[in-house]
């Protein structure tokens, strides 16, 4: 039942998205804009002859694909979930024979289908404009395509679990906003993690945000040793499994709290 249901959710969300196509196109321009500005700054630094851990092509690869990856792994439902829990809007869902998370997965996937269609040509154009030479190693692309859905899953589950804390915490959205900010920084949204000082690298590599965004890009820019790759994939899969367990646990006890307060 579930795949067909998810497909219906996806189709419905695609329709909604078409309705708001102008807004989505703008949002995609914006998604591309942030990384592009960072890229231009780093290229300026790089052209001054400063020695940096990344060369020009690696910067371009990183930041151009950053817009794609950050779009594909983005989540935004934690805040809605928190509101639904707090305002009691969750109740109708609990009566349906489908876990609430299925709807959110559908929504998330549906929007991304449309966004991908809008964003890809833009990224392509910029790539041509910058005369970018993207990596040609098929193995790197293969590993990238494996780590990308994993990154999306980590990001989604992290968001969902934090949003679910609304079962117990009144104003969880404050936490969600701070997470978005700090999480973005630690995920390499502004500065690639590889450019952080060496003494922080050990810590940076084991924190979860790396596996929501930075890791697929690191795989692609190709500076990871096979050992580092294996290490990274192990952490990424570990976070997936761990967060899924968290989700089950939080919802198991959360629904009891929800029913108890009768919200």
């Amino acid at each position: 039942m579930t795949p067909r249901l998810i497909w219906r959710c996806v189709a419905m969300n695609v329709m909604m998205t078409i309705e708001y196509r102008g807004e989505f196109a703008m949002r995609m321009v914006n998604t591309l804009l942030g990384p592009l500005i960072s890229l231009l700054v780093w290229l300026t630094v790089s052209e001054q002859g400063v020695r940096l851990p990344y060369d020009r092509d690696q910067f371009i690869t990183y930041y151009l694909l950053l817009s794609l990856v950050s779009m594909l792994t983005a989540t935004w439902l934690g805040a809605y979930l928190a509101a639904a829990i707090r305002q009691g809007d969750l109740s109708p869902w609990l009566l349906r024979p489908v876990p609430y998370i299925v709807n959110d997965i559908g929504n998330n996937a549906g929007e991304k289908v449309i966004k991908l269609v809008l964003l890809c040509p833009m990224v392509g154009l910029v790539a041509v404009f910058l005369r970018a030479s993207l990596p040609s190693d098929p193995r790197a692309w293969l590993l990238f395509t494996i780590s990308l859905p994993l990154a999306a899953a980590v990001a989604f589950l992290l968001d969902f679990v934090i949003g679910s804390l609304a079962f117990w915490i009144q104003d969880v959205w404050g936490l969600i906003r701070v997470k978005a900010l700090v999480g973005g920084f630690l995920a390499g949204q502004w500065v690639p993690l590889a450019l952080f000082p060496a003494r922080f690298q050990g810590l940076l590599q084991i924190q979860p945000f790396r596996y929501t965004l930075s890791f697929p890009l690191e795989v692609l820019t190709g500076h990871l040793t096979p050992a580092a790759l294996a290490y990274g994939f192990a952490w990424q899969v570990g976070y997936c499994v761990g967060l899924w367990a968290c989700y089950r646990l939080v919802w198991h006890y959360g629904l009891r709290a929800y029913a108890a307060t009768g919200a």
């Binding site: 189709a11 695609v14 329709m15 078409i18 309705e19 196509r21």
Partner: peptide, 10 residues
């Protein structure tokens, strides 16, 4: 109505 209608509406 429908997905096809939305697409045609474009």
């Amino acid at each position: 109505p429908g997905l096809r209608g939305s697409l045609r509406g474009l």
